[in-house]
Amino acid sequence: MNRRNNDELRVIATEHAPDDANQVADFTPGLIDVGEHHLCPGCGEPIAIRAVMDAIALLGLADTCIAVFGIGCSTAFSNNLDVEVLQALHGRAPSVATGVARVHPGLAVFTIQGDGDMANEGLQEVLHAAARGENIVCIMLNNGVFGETGGHLTVTTTIGQRTKNTLDGRTAAEHGHPMRIAELLAQIDGVGYVARGAVNDAGNVARTKRMVVEAFTAQQAGLGLSFVEILTMCPTGWFVPTDEAPDYLASTLAGTHGVGVLRSALEPA
């Protein structure tokens, strides 16, 4: 709860930038042309996409990368980035990215998909792309639901998690078990880097950005497919108020899908 509710404390005007200060962060990152989007209040996906675009800018890859988007809530961004984008069909992004990467071997080709897109519709795509060691980075935004349809069961939905088609919570008996995608990919020889981050607090956002930088570094070094799973909040799909979603992520989603670097062929820094 916010302890700052004493009305006497002076609210500082925040309409104009000060002239005796250095800018540390801007509204919309350079590689996102319009910050406006129609995703729900408290959605974690814009935070994750910002972390990815910040990492790309950090590595100076803006004019040597191609994004391949899946279909889901994050598709809202595929027409608002200042990097080249190829919009793929639901589930197909890793295959589409394979085609792009084979034609432009040196580029930083990467996919952005949701868990529904990658782990449900297109799991075969990413598994085989990993087995082939395709020189691409696959980013999976995992909120444990199909967000765009309002929050339905996916293969990463955790036991007990309520969704629009598991209103009383997912049970193994009725809805089967969740699958841990990062772990699945970490055991495939063609991968060079596998990690799982989260965007439910500033610390995790910074940690996730580091993982994305490492993933692209491994990809640029030709170490095989890089995979970064990013746990994101979906208050709408979780039946959870926006300010409780970060803790819900930590207890529910991250309880099954542990945050951390699972595999890396990069030499330790």
Binding site: G30, L31, D33, V34, E36, H37, H38, L61, A62, D63, T64, C65, I66, T75, A76, S78, N79, N80, L81, D82, V83, E84, V85, L86, Q87, L89, H104, L107, A108
Partner: peptide, 25 residues
């Protein structure tokens, strides 16, 4: 990849390239 960072990066999409009135999606 080369048009990245120029303010008019290329897009190929089955959803087209026209943005909605508010410049989004």
């Amino acid at each position: 990849g080369s048009s990245g960072g120029t303010g008019s990066a290329k897009l190929v999409s089955p959803l087209g390239t026209t943005k909605q009135r508010d410049g989004v999606g």
